[in-house]
């Protein structure tokens, strides 16, 4: 580094410069990330007149809001579990299934694309496929005489939203889990085998315990990912499906709850739920990385 002959004053000046270097970032983060969020968080504990209250939080426990949270959680849990399960088998297939290499690189590239293919266009894609006149619906009707919508299936429902969300959940799982599966050393399997373990014993006693922090952590990430998503659901169902982000959207547009501070509480609830699952995810990832050494 540079010389430090004129000791004391130079050091303090240098420290000032050091901290000035990240000032732009600090200002940006405060203005566009932290203060707006804190504003909502504090607003959740205030009455419209500015007095401290827990009433907003208590009001979250009204049936209409609770049902919104409940359906959001159900969709997020279902799509993250489904995404995790299918994603795990896909990652397993390309890492340990002995398939040709081009399948692996093809699937990984595709996963990179599909995990970012969310929002409004994704809703269109599923409407064109599983909507009332979608490709699969029509195909089943014309070729098998099977009326998909006669079974009570509806794309604009809990189940429809879940399988739509899985379109970006599965690839995300594949992307995060493939490195974790690559990290399973061949020698662990061989060591277990030569010690007499069957394939099933190896998976139960060695591989799954090693993988579970990654598996569970990624599932939590998928959960948070689905919980905060709005564009797909909004384009798919309009405002007919009462999930939290859509309720919040309507509240922002038109104060449908007739209480701005209740809107803040709604937002706080979302932050708490996604925050908890992300913190658990980070914690589990640190656990997983400890073993990867």
């Amino acid at each position: 580094m540079t010389t430090t002959t004129a000791a004391a004053p130079l050091i303090s000046k240098r420290a000032v410069i050091d901290w000035l270097g990240i000032a732009p970032f600090a200002i940006f983060a405060l203005m566009f990330l932290i203060v707006p969020t804190l504003y909502l968080v504090t607003g959740a504990f205030l009455t419209p007149e500015g007095a401290f209250t827990f009433k907003n939080l208590a009001d979250l426990f009204t049936p209409s809001i609770m049902s919104a949270y409940w359906i959001s959680i159900r969709v997020s849990v279902a799509s993250s579990l489904g995404g995790a399960l299918i994603g795990f088998f896909l990652a397993w297939a390309i890492v340990l299934g002995g398939v040709p290499n081009w399948i692996r690189s093809g699937l990984l590239t595709f996963s990179g694309v599909a995990s970012n293919f969310a929002g409004v266009p994704l809703a269109f894609a599923f409407l064109s496929t599983l909507g009332r006149t979608g490709l699969v619906t029509v195909f089943l009707r014309d070729w098998f005489g099977f009326n998909l919508y006669g079974t009570g299936f509806n794309l604009l429902s809990f189940f429809g939203l879940t399988i739509t969300y899985m379109y970006f959940q599965i690839p995300l799982m594949v992307l995060i889990l493939t490195p974790a599966l690559d990290g399973l050393k061949k020698e662990w399997r061989e060591a277990a085998e030569i010690l007499g373990a069957s394939t099933w014993q190896y998976w139960r006693m060695v591989a799954l315990p090693i993988l579970w922090p990654s598996l569970l952590g990624t599932t939590l990430l998928l959960f948070a990912n689905a919980f905060g998503a709005i564009a797909t659901a909004y384009a798919l169902t309009g405002s007919s499906l009462n999930i939290v982000p859509i309720l919040l959207y309507a509240q922002i547009r038109g104060d449908v709850l007739h209480n701005p501070n209740l809107g803040y509480a709604l937002a706080l609830g979302m932050i708490v739920i996604t925050g908890i699952s992300n913190i658990l995810y980070i914690w589990l990832r640190m656990r997983a990385e400890r073993w990867q050494k």
């Binding site: 990330l33 932290i34 909502l40 922002i252 937002a267 979302m270 932050i271 925050g275």
Partner: peptide
């Protein structure tokens, strides 16, 4: 940690904050 926050706080919450602030 700060750079990861936008993954934790849903976009709709962030923009809600902007609209109020």
């Amino acid at each position: 940690f700060v750079t990861l926050l936008p993954l934790v706080i849903p976009a709709i919450v962030i923009v809600f904050g902007y609209l109020r602030l």
